[in-house]
Simulated assay, not measured.
Amino acid sequence: MYQHLTGLGINEPTQIERYSLRQEAQKDVLKIYFKKQKGELFAKSVKFKYPRQVKSVLLDDGSGQYRNKTEVNRNLTLLIDELNTLTKPIKPSELDTKQKILSDLRHLEKVVSSKIAEIEADIEKLQ
Rank of each mutant, 00 (worst) to 15 (best):
M1F: 11
M1N: 13
M1C: 06
Y2H: 15
Q3N: 08
Q3V: 01
T6G: 05
G7H: 10
L8H: 06
G9I: 09
I10W: 04
N11E: 12
E12V: 11
T14G: 02
Q15Y: 10
Q15A: 13
Q15D: 15
E17D: 08
Y19T: 10
S20T: 15
S20V: 06
S20D: 12
R22V: 11
R22M: 12
Q23R: 14
Q23Y: 04
Q26W: 07
Q26N: 10
K27P: 00
V29E: 00
V29Q: 03
I32W: 05
I32P: 09
F34W: 03
K35H: 13
K36Q: 14
Q37L: 10
Q37Y: 04
K38W: 10
K38E: 14
K38Y: 14
E40F: 10
E40H: 04
E40C: 08
L41G: 12
A43V: 01
K44S: 06
K44T: 12
S45W: 04
S45M: 05
V46Q: 12
V46L: 11
F48Y: 15
F48C: 05
K49P: 00
P51T: 10
P51D: 07
P51R: 03
P51W: 02
P51Y: 02
R52Q: 14
R52M: 15
Q53C: 02
K55A: 03
S56W: 10
S56E: 14
V57Y: 05
V57T: 05
L59S: 01
L59P: 00
L59K: 08
D60N: 13
D60F: 12
G62S: 09
S63D: 08
Y66T: 14
R67D: 04
N68E: 12
T70Q: 09
V72G: 00
V72H: 01
R74G: 00
R74Q: 02
L76C: 02
L76S: 10
T77L: 14
L79T: 09
L79K: 08
L79C: 06
I80P: 09
E82N: 08
E82W: 07
T85A: 13
T85M: 10
T85W: 08
T85Q: 12
T85L: 13
P89F: 10
I90P: 05
I90E: 11
K91A: 10
K91E: 14
P92A: 07
P92I: 08
L95W: 10
L95M: 09
T97Y: 11
T97V: 13
K98C: 13
Q99F: 13
L102F: 14
D104C: 01
L105H: 01
R106S: 13
R106F: 13
H107T: 13
L108P: 01
E109Q: 06
E109N: 11
K110N: 12
V111A: 09
V112R: 00
S113P: 00
S114P: 00
S114T: 09
S114N: 11
S114L: 02
K115F: 01
K115Q: 07
I116P: 09
I116W: 07
E118L: 04
E118H: 12
I119K: 13
E120F: 00
E120P: 00
A121V: 00
D122G: 01
I123T: 01
I123G: 01
Q127A: 07
Q127W: 03
Q127N: 12
